[in-house]
Amino acid sequence: MDAGSIRTTLTLPRAAHALIHEGTPIVGWGVAVFTILTPLILAGGLVYVCVPLLFGRIAPGGMFVARWISITEPWNMIEVFLLGVLVSLMKLGKLADLHFGMGFWAFAVLMFCMAAAVAAIDKKELWDRLEVAKNHV
């Protein structure tokens, strides 16, 4: 079951890598950006900015990071990728016996949690709090 989860998480970089080497490098880089780079910037950036804000402080460069969160937000396609995984498994189901391990469902729940976390951020409140914290220092 653990192996299932490892294989699924490996699919992200592997999928991009395969496209880059199979003659469509532009699409491959696009997939890498939308499913690996932007979610990492978003998740990392949100933690970096929000955790100090809990204590009313602003992380060094917090304003810059928050700007990048705003810019990358529409390009995070992790939940779209999950739908892609489901569709591919349906397609592959014709060719081979595939069964969903617990790992797959854990991965799916993780993705939905992340999508929900991003959706739950009120950007106006984030900016207001950042401004208050900045003026306090």
């Binding site: 699919t11 592997r14 999928a15 991009a16 890598h17 395969a18 496209l19 199979e22 003659g23 469509t24 699409v27 491959g28 696009g30 997939v31 939308f34 499913t35 396609m77 779209v80 990728f81 739908l83 892609g84 995984v85 569709v87 591919s88 397609k91 592959l92 060719l95």
Partner: peptide, 26 residues
């Protein structure tokens, strides 16, 4: 959400490389 088909292609290309039996290219 329109990106879903591109991701399907990416996943199939990565997973279906069964040598002479079956390969998928974009």
């Amino acid at each position: 959400w329109s990106m879903v088909d591109i991701f399907v292609v990416a996943i199939l290309v990565a997973m279906v490389q069964l040598g002479n039996y079956m390969t998928v290219t974009p």
